[in-house]
Design a protein around this nucleic acid. Structure first.
Length: 722
DNA sequence: CTGGACAAGCTTTTT
DNA sequence: GCTTGTCCAG
């Protein structure tokens, strides 16, 4: 990313930056200064060409990329950039919709955004209403089918007439109607409805066509059809589309990204120029050669050959571990090596994996050896139950029509409104065609429920009404505070350190948001949260090793990288080999390799537990596709590093059997060790039995079952041994 | 209505 | 193996 150290642009780069009018495709190989081209060009347009920043639209793939660009442009031209339209496709669309959606019938301006979880809940509801069992059709796959239809701009009727299952079309149809009723838009809607708006209201389209004299798109290879459509529509008047991308890094096909957008750019935009940036400023010759060689195996690509002036550099290392534990241990010991003998810092190093669940075992090993790390993504911050709960409260306050969120929190924390009551409310809401929220009021007026339920419901309704009233005019942080208190959510978390911290984090986010955005409303905050991702929160200033998926690694760079799980069925992933998507998997690995500046470590295991079953994986076909002479091959029998061998020997004994391993864990962690089955005492909960131990020492997370009080996750230092 | 025990299911990647 | 959903006793 920061390849812009060399202060002068090379001739090709300069050519792209100063390109005059008309469509231009910049095919920018990995590490060729892609971000720099865009930021320099925007600065050039504003600074040299005196273009008004509000006439420029720049679209990126992640919020992080957008923020980085903003910062860089600021550095180049100071405050003159203000007014520039910059953001992700989703956030730009949202901004347009917030202004214009009232012009479309059936939509309201104060809509909320539904994430994947909300979608699935709603789809389940639709399915049950259509009497379609979850066994015959998986809600998850229905969701992705609906999503991909929307990403292609297809209506329920259109997919019905296609080869699609007509049941999907029926669910899709009902789902859409429900979304409108709930006053909600899902992710795909943000793009889909924007295109519809442009197509149905030519005068609105014209307004934005007039506005955007210059349009720039980053990561063009990852655009889907709707995104293409938006760009195509908006650029019809001025025709100044400047897109930057690398077809070799297209890795979001599964999410509807359409690689033909970049492959057919010259066909879609007449008189388009194409500039290729083939000089890489990031990686050593060796790394680049390996990556080039690998990607050559793909057929579907623009021709492009990356080169560099950097030195040869070290060969890639490939280690075939005994099992996933040995793999983790190898990674950790190589990292320790890099730190002690090569003088690197933790933040110079990253570990990539194909699937999130691979991170757990690495994390355990890091904890054991006390290496600082951050996990980017994973069980995402925004996916955590407590965060979703808190946000659901806010969503209901912002939009009482939101049945899905209301359903989530109506009995959280438990307040005596059980399934029976909720079912009743649902029934009334459906029969009367009103929202769940309104049905509560109805029920209370009609006194249609048993006394106890009525009382509980009344209390809840009163509380919610008060909060809704309060929400007017009060700061988001304050409101959040009140919500936590009044709903009793804070009490619920009293003993849950980690969850409380997470809730604290959302309070921080609210405060930060309010500082950054003047006069921000609750709606603005919720929108912002909906469009934020965990990668956006990744902060590369802390001195920690980064643990992340290959997908989230895109756009980043590190001196040293590890790619673990180099096995068939992992990369290429099982699902891709079936679906003929191996080329995308190869690109994914290509993305991973080209993140490295100096050194690449690849690892795989010859045994691995998958779904709790012992498997014997085969090395990834991609290993064989890398030039042999650039790989240093090692396995766990090898004698390359005596240190590795020693740890392995002791570890084999240590992990020989579950029981000996547990004993050992308890015995080794200097008196603070815990193991499952042990009886402990907690100052609040009293005696309990340990169910699970994660990590070691005082900071270990211990899952304990307390008779009569449930299972809790507790930090070890809060416990007493019995 | 609540909590706990148990079973079933599932795991690709994310704006 | 872990998380989610379901069923049952209190």
């Amino acid at each position: 990313m920061s390849s812009g150290k060399s202060n002068k642009l090379n001739p090709t780069q300069a050519d792209a930056v100063a390109h005059t009018d008309g469509p231009l495709l910049v095919l920018a190989g990995a590490g060729s200064g892609k971000t720099r081209i865009i930021t320099e060009r925007i600065s050039y347009l504003i600074g040299e060409k005196n273009i008004n920043p509000s006439n420029i639209l720049a679209v990126t793939f992640t919020n992080k990329a957008a923020n980085e660009m903003k910062e860089r442009i600021h550095r180049l031209i100071g405050d003159r950039y203000k007014g520039l339209w910059i953001g992700t496709f989703h956030s730009v669309s949202l901004r347009i919709l917030k202004r214009e959606i009232k012009n479309l019938t059936g939509f309201k301006q104060d809509f909320v955004i539904y994430d994947e979880g909300d979608q699935i809940k709603l789809i389940k509801e639709c399915m049950s209403r259509l009497n379609i069992g979850e066994r015959t059709l998986e809600p998850r796959s229905v969701r992705s089918k609906i999503d991909s239809a929307k990403n292609k701009g297809l209506t329920p009727e259109q997919i019905e007439s296609h080869t699609y299952n007509d049941r999907i079309a029926k669910i899709y149809d009902l789902y859409e109607k429900e979304l409108r009723k709930l006053n909600a838009l899902d992710f795909a809607d943000l793009l889909y409805v924007t295109t519809n708006l442009f197509e149905e209201k030519p005068e609105i389209l014209r307004k934005y066509q007039d506005l955007f004299h210059y349009i720039l798109v980053d990561e063009y290879q990852d655009t889907n059809h709707m995104q293409y459509k938006i760009i195509e529509l908006l650029s019809r008047k001025h025709r100044n589309v400047f897109v930057v991308g690398d077809d070799n890094q297209s890795i979001y096909g599964w999410r509807g990204a359409d690689i033909t957008n970049i492959l057919n750019f010259e066909r879609d935009f007449k008189d388009a120029r194409v500039i290729k940036l083939e000089r890489n400023y990031r990686s050593t010759k060796t790394i680049l050669k390996a990556a080039n060689e690998l990607i050559l195996k793909n057929k579907n690509r623009h021709d492009k050959n990356l080169w560099t002036e950097k030195q040869e550099g070290e060969k890639l290392s490939y280690y075939e571990a005994r099992d996933e534990r040995d793999e983790a241990r190898h990674v950790v010991s190589e990292i320790e090596n890099e730190i002690s003998s090569s003088g690197r810092s933790y933040k110079d190093i990253a570990v990539f994996f194909r699937t999130n669940n691979q991170s757990r075992i690495i994390e355990e090993e890091f904890l054991r050896r006390n290496l600082p790390y951050t996990i980017v993504g994973g069980v995402g911050f925004y996916q955590r139950a407590e965060i979703k709960d808190v946000l659901a409260f806010l969503k209901v306050i912002a939009n009482p029509l939101d049945n899905i969120s209301l359903g989530r929190i109506i009995n959280v924390p438990p307040r005596g409104i059980g399934k029976g009551t909720v079912d009743k409310l649902d029934e009334i809401a459906r029969r009367e065609g009103i929202s769940l929220f309104d049905s509560i009021e109805r029920v209370l007026n009609d006194k249609a429920l048993p006394a106890r339920a009525t009382k509980n419901l009344e209390r809840f309704f009163k509380m919610l009404s008060e909060l809704i009233e309060m929400a007017q005019g009060v700061e988001i942080g304050k409101l959040l505070d009140k919500v936590l208190q009044k709903t009793g959510y804070l009490d619920l978390l009293e003993k849950e350190e980690e969850r409380r911290e997470n809730v604290g984090e959302i309070l921080n986010l609210a405060a930060e948001f309010e500082k950054a955005e003047e006069n921000a409303t609750l709606h603005d905050f919720l929108d912002w949260v909906s469009l934020s991702s965990d990668v956006d929160r990744f902060n590369d200033k802390d001195d920690r090793v980064a643990l992340l998926t290959l997908h989230s690694a895109k756009g980043l760079e590190f001196p040293v990288i590890f790619i673990i799980g180099m096995e068939e069925n992992l990369i290429p992933h099982f699902n891709s080999t079936k679906n003929g998507e191996v080329e995308e998997e190869r690109r994914l690995l290509y993305v991973g390799l080209t993140r490295a500046k100096e050194k690449v470590y690849l690892t795989g295991a010859s045994r691995r537990r998958v779904f709790g079953k012992e498997e014997r994986p085969v090395p990834s076909r991609f290993i064989a596709e890398l030039p042999k002479e650039l790989l240093v091959w090692n396995n766990h029998h090898g004698s390359r590093i005596t240190k590795t061998r020693n740890t392995e020997y002791t570890d084999r004994r240590r992990y020989g059997s579950v029981s000996s391993r547990r004993k050992n864990k308890a015995a080794t962690s200097n008196g603070k060790g815990y193991r499952a089955g042990q009886i402990i005492e907690h100052p609040m909960f009293g005696e309990g039995v340990i169910k699970r131990v994660e990590g070691t020492g005082g900071s270990a997370k211990i899952t304990v079952s307390f008779p009569g009080r449930g299972t809790k996750k507790i930090i070890a230092s809060y416990l007493e041994r019995k």
